[in-house]
Write a protein that binds this DNA or RNA. Sequence first.
DNA 1: CATATTTTACTGTTAAGGCAGTAAATGTGA
DNA 2: TCACATTTACTGCCTTAACAGTAAAATATG
Lengths: 87, 87
Amino acid sequence: MNNITQIVGRLGELVRFHRNKAGLTQIQLADLAGVGKSTVYDIEKGKSTVQISSLFAVLAIMNIDVKFSGPLSAAFEKWSAAQSSDK
Amino acid sequence: MNNITQIVGRLGELVRFHRNKAGLTQIQLADLAGVGKSTVYDIEKGKSTVQISSLFAVLAIMNIDVKFSGPLSAAFEKWSAAQSSDK
DNA sequence: CATATTTTACTGTTAAGGCAGTAAATGTGA
DNA sequence: TCACATTTACTGCCTTAACAGTAAAATATG
């Protein structure tokens, strides 16, 4: 059990929690997200080999936001903004 | 260009930014993360079909944190804590 | 308790990612 | 400009995720 397994496992629980509260079955969520029912099952089970596109499609339906932050995030924001301004 | 494409694309830029500042080549980062060089390239390029395990392995090396938050996150935390206490 | 619904688990098929190797393009420094 | 390093792009092979179908286990509903 490494870090990523924990994270993905907890993420699966979060998805399931939201789905249950929303009153959706796995199949309904799968259809809404445009993925297969097996994929929803895998995500909730904490399978770490699902694709980002599948995961994010499901997260979007459940209105679950994803945020990334690294030690250089602030510097990145500045750099990124500068990139946009010059051609 | 949908939402997920934007998110993953920006995530790729964030990874590249961190990697450059760390003074690592794609191959070095790939070796550290235990993935192939093509995968690092794909992530930085914003490919949305890479697997979670591959992405998170790279993010871990760069000390990039991932945070998920949905409308029911608070309720989930409480529920999750309760789950741990009872057998 | 009986029945219906949902989830879990397994299946085979299909499609596609992961990967190393390679070569061209790009960038960097002397 | 030349030489070196790095990135980009493409290749084919191999592995495996995605998927629908199905059946059994678990759960909910009446």
